[in-house]
Amino acid sequence: KEQQNAFYEILHLPNLTEEQRNGFIQSLKDDPSVSKEILAEAKKLNDAQA
């Protein structure tokens, strides 16, 4: 469930490039146990690119 939530949120971050988004999603698939950390990174990058 946590992985699904992170997946959904990353898909809807407006400021990520397609490449960045795909990278985060691939990381989620590779290691779902760190989905919280991956989501935090994605949000940080999204904010930095706002």
Rank of each mutant, 00 (worst) to 15 (best):
E18W: 15
L39M: 11
R21Q: 05
A6G: 04
L11I: 06
L45S: 03
D30S: 13
L16C: 00
P32R: 06
I38Y: 03
E2F: 02
G23I: 15
S35P: 05
L11G: 06
L11V: 05
D30V: 15
Q4L: 04
A50I: 11
N22K: 14
K44D: 06
A50E: 08
S33D: 11
Y8W: 07
K43Q: 03
I10E: 01
F24N: 00
E18N: 11
R21E: 01
N46Q: 02
A40F: 14
N5C: 12
L16K: 00
T17A: 03
E9P: 02
N22I: 11
I38V: 10
L16I: 08
L39S: 04
I38L: 08
E2I: 05
K43I: 10
K1W: 05
E2L: 05
L13D: 00
V34F: 12
E37T: 13
I38K: 05
Y8K: 11
K36E: 09
Q4C: 08
L28K: 00
E2R: 03
Q26P: 00
E37R: 10
E9V: 15
K36G: 10
K43D: 02
A40M: 10
K36W: 14
G23N: 12
E2W: 03
K1V: 15
S33R: 09
S27N: 11
A50V: 09
D47H: 13
Q4F: 09
D47P: 01
E9W: 15
Q26E: 06
Q4R: 06
V34G: 12
L28N: 01
H12Q: 12
E37N: 09
S27D: 07
L39V: 12
H12E: 06
A48F: 11
K29C: 04
L39Y: 07
K36T: 06
K1Y: 06
N46A: 08
P32D: 06
A40S: 11
D31K: 14
D30P: 03
E2A: 05
D31C: 03
H12Y: 09
K43F: 15
G23W: 15
D31P: 02
P14A: 12
E2M: 03
Q20I: 02
P32A: 10
A48Q: 12
P32H: 07
E2N: 05
D47N: 08
D30L: 15
F7G: 05
Q4N: 05
L16Y: 00
N46K: 01
A42N: 00
D31L: 04
E2H: 05
E41G: 06
F7V: 13
S35A: 10
S35H: 12
K44A: 06
L45W: 11
Y8V: 08
E19P: 08
